[in-house]
Amino acid sequence: MAFGAATPTPAREPLVALRHVSKSYRAGTYALRDVSFEVGKGELVFLTGASGAGKTTLLRMLFAGERPSTGEVRVLGHDVARLRRRTIPALRRRVGVVFQDFELLPRMNVEENVRLALDVRGVPGREARARVFSALKQVGLHQWRHQDPRSLSGGEQQRVAIARALVGEPSLLLADEPTGNLDPALTIEIMDLIASVAARGTAVIVATHDLALVGRHGRRTLRLDAGRLAGDAALERVSV
């Protein structure tokens, strides 16, 4: 597997745009350094790099969990550095997030976990139920909607988390090591599901250190190395 020479520039108006972004928590040390890239509608982008390369910091900036020390981060038209605390929720309601450890709430069943994303958006009951059913059907779990999520397998729990991220119809989906806790077969299943989301027009950024997974999809890949953007290209598609 090797980096190819594909042109990474998105053809349409970027949904995500970073310009010379640096993040420093302590003077002299950088979690991110002079990172610039853009992501357009319907793009699936992998964010790779070793542990500590800055992947999670970058993702956190994209849902306004962090502010850049310098540079500009624009997400869905908002300048993250200038967002006021009370306007952050409005941005987050347009961004879906999926985590490695699923982050499902044990006191709620599958349906309630997914519905939470609509509850905070103020979607009325009947519409919310229909959308939750549709999202769960999309990930093949509608028949388990009344189950306790702890009774599901890791792959099923991650599909619930994806349904929760998608049910609000986000413009941008962020996934932080979404297959990190899954076996290879489930990894392929979950990544195919995430790729199908991009195919429907949502911009998707997946942070992973699994290069085999990246190679299997042959999509644009941003490689971070010690906080710097060391590569922005498409990995050649390989069979896994």
């Binding site: 969990g65 929720p89 987050r92 609000g168």
Partner: peptide, 13 residues
């Protein structure tokens, strides 16, 4: 944990 997840999903304060 629940509040952190709610905040990520865009729940207002």
């Amino acid at each position: 944990d629940e509040l952190r997840i709610l905040a990520l999903m865009g729940a207002s304060r």
